[in-house]
């Protein structure tokens, strides 16, 4: 499996009276079409790492070392740190798209779903005709299991699960090579969560994009990811194939994480 993203020695600091080292010297590779899970407790730097890779960090966050290189389908290497202004804008979503943590609030409340989907095409594919745009937006929604008629709806008229599906449809719009999903199912109940996860894996199989899946929910990752990276206090403590991580965790923290989820079978925990 060839790689699509290489992150080397990546560090992010939040400057302040007391500088916080949010991400420390992270090395990571993401294979083409792979689902890489990134697990860790709240505040361990998962989201900061994801934002850092896509250059979405705002002051006081500073990338202090390292780089993220995207190996595009066409065979060119793009160092994300070297992109600025217009290049960076054009790069975003086209190569790397994101589904955010607060999916409930990730959609602009005052414009329709169609306008928000079409925005992507009119910005990134200005040559596309209006009719093509319309059809494409309809297709995208249907692909994630939302009725085409929902295009004219506004975010407040959709349920949480539907909004998240719309976000995923949006993330697929330009057929990116990487999709970063930052806790995409955290706010949803387990049934809807499951549906969406199945959807993501199905779409990944169809379209072949790589997924960096961020969550604090380790059992969920064990189920869907190819490999899992465990993060703690800004450092990557373990990176292994899902089955291996589950069966023989190396790092003490990984064992702790695995142990902190109740098992449905076996003995009841003491206490």
């Amino acid at each position: 499996m060839s790689d699509v993203l290489t992150v080397t020695d990546f560090s992010v600091d939040y400057l302040g009276e007391q500088t916080v080292h949010a991400v420390r010297n992270v090395d990571l590779t993401l294979g083409r079409g792979e689902i890489l899970g990134l697990a860790g407790e709240s505040g361990c730097g998962k989201t900061t790492l994801a934002y850092g890779i896509n250059r979405l960090l705002k002051p006081p966050a500073v990338i202090t070392s390292g780089k993220a290189v995207l190996h595009s389908r066409e065979g060119t290497d793009i160092d994300l740190g070297s992109l600025t202004g217009e290049e960076l804008r054009a790069f975003r979503w086209d190569r790397v798209s994101m589904v955010f943590q607060g999916a409930m609030n990730s959609l602009n409340p005052v414009i329709s779903i169609r306008a928000q989907l079409e925005d992507i095409f009119s910005t990134h594919r200005p040559a596309m005709s209006k009719a093509d745009r319309r059809t494409r937006c309809g297709e995208l929604l249907e692909r994630v299991g939302v009725d085409r008629n929902r295009l004219k709806s506004y975010p407040h008229e959709l349920s949480g699960g539907m909004r998240q599906r719309v976000m995923i449809a949006m993330a697929m719009a330009l057929e990116p090579q990487i999709m970063i999903m930052d806790e995409p199912t955290t706010a949803l109940d387990v049934v809807v969560q499951r549906e969406i996860l199945l959807e993501i894996t199905r779409l990944r199989d169809e379209l072949g994009f790589a997924v960096l899946f961020i969550t604090h929910d380790l059992p969920l990752l064990l189920e869907i990811s190819d490999r899992i990276a465990v993060m703690r206090a800004g450092e990557l403590v373990e990176l292994a194939p899902a089955a291996q991580l589950y069966n023989s965790p190396q790092h003490a923290y990984t064992k702790l994480l695995l142990g902190s989820f109740p098992s449905l079978t076996g003995e009841r925990a003491a206490g």
């Binding site: 798209s97 943590q101 005052v110 992507i120």
Partner: peptide
Amino acid sequence: EDYIVTAEAKGLTRRRIMTTYAARN
């Protein structure tokens, strides 16, 4: 707001983010 970060990640132009996403709300 989260939708501003989304708009930014979507690679929309600064102008469009300022008007349709931020100012409009």
